[in-house]
């Protein structure tokens, strides 16, 4: 069993949206503005010419943070949200009652309703598809042309992600909430 996480070299992102497309294709995500597991946030250039703030013009790929201490898992009344053996936060649609508590509790806005099953869905690092087939990559990572994403086992000291996290400075989002995210932004 692994302890999967993802490192994002986000400054390499060119906002081609290939990751979003690959995610939808691989996992059969419905179309629609609020039906997305992953996204790329776009910061526009701020300020007035010629005093433009070019640092504000950044791309921020993001998704479920796969928290080690996930608020969505804690608030689920029926254990529909659970940690699998790979440390991935997943949803069992059979148990989900669509009370939407997880959507409210998630600090990262990572959850949405799948209109086919009318249950709450989220990124599960391609657990139902690629990992289930025995692969050890995610669709978003494989397709990224600038290699923003590195997916791997945090417990394996020789994995690419472990080496990256040892050698590159990084930060995670909203760590003050105690969620212990497993998405790391490389600086």
């Amino acid at each position: 069993m692994a302890n999967y996480g993802m490192a994002l070299d986000y400054k390499n992102c060119i906002n081609c949206s290939a990751c979003e497309t690959a995610c939808k294709e691989e996992n059969g995500i419905l179309m629609g503005a609020d039906k997305h597991r992953i996204w790329v946030g776009v910061g526009e250039i701020e300020g007035q010419y010629p005093l433009l703030d070019i640092t504000s013009n950044a791309f921020h790929p993001s998704q479920c943070q796969q928290c080690e201490n996930a608020p969505c898992e804690e608030v689920c009344p029926t254990h529909a949200t659970y940690y699998d053996d790979n440390g991935i936060v997943r949803v069992d649609p059979d148990k989900c009652i669509l009370c939407s508590y997880c959507m409210n509790a998630c600090p990262y806005d990572a959850r949405y309703v799948d209109d086919r099953t009318m249950t709450v869905d989220k990124c599960n690092f391609c657990s139902d598809t690629r990992l289930a087939r025995g692969e050890t990559t995610t669709a978003c990572q494989t397709t990224c042309p600038t290699k923003v994403r590195t997916f791997g086992d945090l417990d394996d000291p020789e994995s690419e992600i472990s080496i990256l996290l040892r050698t590159r400075e990084h930060y995670s989002l909203k760590t003050h909430l105690g969620t212990k995210p497993k998405l790391f932004y490389l600086t």
Binding site: P77, T78, H79, L98
Partner: peptide, 25 residues
Amino acid sequence: IGHPVTMVIYNVVSPGLTSAIWWMG
């Protein structure tokens, strides 16, 4: 609640004891 019948079943067979909604219900 999207699935009230599922709620009645899984509230009993799969109780989420850390959930305020479970205790409240």
